[in-house]
Amino acid sequence: MGTDWPDFTLFAQGDAGQGAVKVEPGAEPTINAEQPPFWIYVVPLALTFGIFYFLFILPEKKKAQEKEDLLGNLKKNDKVVTIGGVYGVVASVNKDGEDVLIKIDEDKDVKMRVTKTSIARVITGKDETKDADKTA
C-alpha cells in the first residue's frame, strides 16, 4: 500500500474547461475563474440608496421645510391649530423666543402661551369652511 493519493478534479461550474479545480496532493486548490467586475456590486447598492432617498428622505425634507416656513411666517391674527387640537387666534409672536400667545376664547379673553413648534397648522379660508361643515 502506497501513500500516493490519486489526483482529484472537482468541477465547480459545468465542464472541465471552465472553473475546474485541480487538487494536487499536498497543494492548495486553485480556481481559474475570474472575479466579476466591481460595478456588479456597486450598482444594486446605489439603486437601493436612490430608491430609499426618493421615497423616504426627500419627502421628509420637504415636510420639514414647509413646517419651518409655516412657523417663520406666523403673525398676529393667524388662525391656528396646535398639535393638541386646540383652535385659536395668534395674539402675539415672540420673534426672539420660541413662544406664541394664542387667544382661545374671544368673549372671556382666554389666552394660552405655547411653543412655536406646537403649532400644527395655520387655518386658511378653505380650512375654515371645512371645519364649519364638520361642526354643523
Rank of each mutant, 00 (worst) to 15 (best):
K111I: 10
S118I: 04
I102E: 01
P59Y: 11
V43I: 08
A46K: 08
Y87M: 04
A20W: 07
L74R: 00
L101E: 00
Q13N: 11
P36A: 13
K130F: 15
G88A: 01
A20C: 14
R113D: 07
S118V: 11
T9A: 11
D69C: 06
E60A: 05
K67C: 04
A120Q: 06
W5G: 12
K67T: 02
E98K: 02
I57E: 03
L71R: 03
V23K: 02
G26Q: 01
G2E: 10
T48V: 11
V93C: 01
V42Y: 00
K22W: 14
A27W: 12
T3E: 13
K79I: 12
I83K: 08
I51Y: 15
L10W: 06
G88W: 02
N94Y: 02
E34A: 13
N73R: 00
K108R: 15
V122K: 03
K126R: 15
D131R: 12
W39P: 08
T135Q: 08
T82R: 00
Y87A: 02
T82Y: 03
P6L: 07
G2M: 14
E66P: 08
L10F: 02
D133Y: 10
K22L: 09
D131Y: 15
R113C: 07
P59R: 14
A132D: 06
A46M: 13
E98R: 05
F38R: 11
E60W: 04
V93L: 00
T129M: 05
L10P: 03
I102T: 02
D131N: 09
D7G: 07
F56H: 07
L58V: 06
E24Y: 12
N73H: 03
E128T: 06
T48F: 08
A120E: 02
V89N: 06
T9C: 07
V110C: 12
A20K: 08
A20E: 14
P25Q: 13
E66A: 06
Q65E: 15
W5A: 15
V86G: 01
E98D: 10
E68W: 08
V81P: 01
I104C: 09
